[in-house]
């Protein structure tokens, strides 16, 4: 590494400040024109706890529409990116994404069931969260039963199998769903959107997100060792199986929580960790904060485009790939650092 340790210590701080600036810009953008001065005035008045005036339309838009979306975009993006970084280290596999163990497929199956039975939105979110956790629990159970092989490989293969089972069931549900009322909602869920996110959704999912990220932060050094290989980790006295289980639990928790409010958003969990690695190198204690910040910033930019470019919303799953792929290829062509 050419950079000194001291410059790295403050990097997350600068990154966080940049993200805050980006959030302010995002708050000022949208289908309704609200000038940045008013954004600032409303923010300051709210932060000072002044709720005396009846809220203006601009205030409602800022507080009830844009703020939840900005917060959701940052937290969902950060969560997916951090989970992807953890999985890639955990499985020594650059193609690992948060859904490698079936969490997205399980969450989708839960959500599709909820939509098929026309359950309330909160129940759909709950089923998505539970479905994501259950799918990974099943994968873990299978891996625990199959002991004689490389455990990381068994996990990934079991994840592939469980994902395709969930995928098949989802296809069946879509066949039986009402093509005019249920099917479009299902399709949009699978493409991801933050359009319906409320502050309440955020308060419900935030504990799971924060808990997962805290666990990853506390164990960041151990993951660095683990990413060098199981043998090396055992040599320095780490309980590899236990550590892997804890990381999978943490990454699954954040991914399931994120997906339950956003629907499936591809690309971020796979590629942002690579971008983060280009910036920060393979050391997970540096990689994690960079991945969190980059993931949050990336989804914030993408979601701002999704809600403000056209009259209609552009599904996030489409935009993440369209915006992300060229950017990633550009970095790949320029970067010299390997991983």
């Amino acid at each position: 590494m050419s950079r000194s340790e001291s410059s790295w210590r403050f990097a997350p701080l600068w990154g966080a400040l940049a993200l805050l600036g980006l959030a302010f810009v995002s708050l000022s953008l949208g289908r309704l024109g609200i000038d940045p001065g008013e954004v600032l005035a409303v923010s300051l008045r709210r932060l000072a706890g002044d709720f005396t005036e009846a809220p203006s339309r601009a205030e409602i838009v800022l507080w009830n529409v844009r703020l939840p979306r900005v917060l959701a975009a940052v937290s969902v993006g950060a969560a997916l990116s951090a989970a992807g970084a953890a999985y890639q280290g955990l499985f020594h596999n650059p193609l690992a994404a948060p859904d490698v163990l079936g969490v997205s497929a399980g969450a989708s199956l839960g959500a599709m069931l909820g939509l098929f039975f026309s359950l309330p939105v909160a129940a759909v979110q709950g089923l998505a969260f539970a479905g994501g956790l259950s799918a990974v629990a099943v994968v873990q159970a299978i891996a625990a039963l199959v002991r004689q092989r490389d455990p990381a490989l068994v996990l990934v293969l079991a994840g592939v199998a469980v994902s395709s089972l969930c995928g098949a069931t989802i296809s069946l549900i879509k066949l039986l769903a009402d093509p005019y009322t249920q099917l479009p909602t299902m399709t949009y869920w699978m493409l991801g959107s933050l359009g319906a996110v409320t502050l309440h959704d955020l308060t419900v999912t935030m504990p799971a997100l924060v808990a997962g990220v805290v666990v990853m932060t506390l164990l960041r050094w151990r993951l660095t060792v683990l990413s060098f290989g199981d043998e090396d980790a055992r040599a320095v006295g780490l309980d590899v199986a236990w550590l892997r289980g804890v990381f999978i639990a943490a990454a699954t928790l954040v991914t399931a929580a994120a997906v339950s409010i956003s629907g499936v958003i591809g690309w971020i969990g796979l590629v942002i960790p690579h971008v983060a690695r280009l910036v920060a190198g393979p050391d997970f204690s540096r990689l994690l904060p960079v991945a969190l910040l980059l993931g949050g910033a990336f989804l914030l930019v993408v979601d701002t485009l999704a809600r403000s470019v056209m009259d209609i919303e552009i599904p996030l799953g489409i935009l993440t790939a369209v915006v992300g792929a060229p950017f990633f290829l550009f970095l790949l062509a320029r970067g010299e650092r390997g991983w």
């Binding site: 289908r31 529409v65 959107s193 359009g195 809600r307 209609i312 919303e313």
Partner: peptide
Amino acid sequence: GNPQVSIEQILH
């Protein structure tokens, strides 16, 4: 078509 729209667009 039947797209998704934002609540902000509906306010608009």
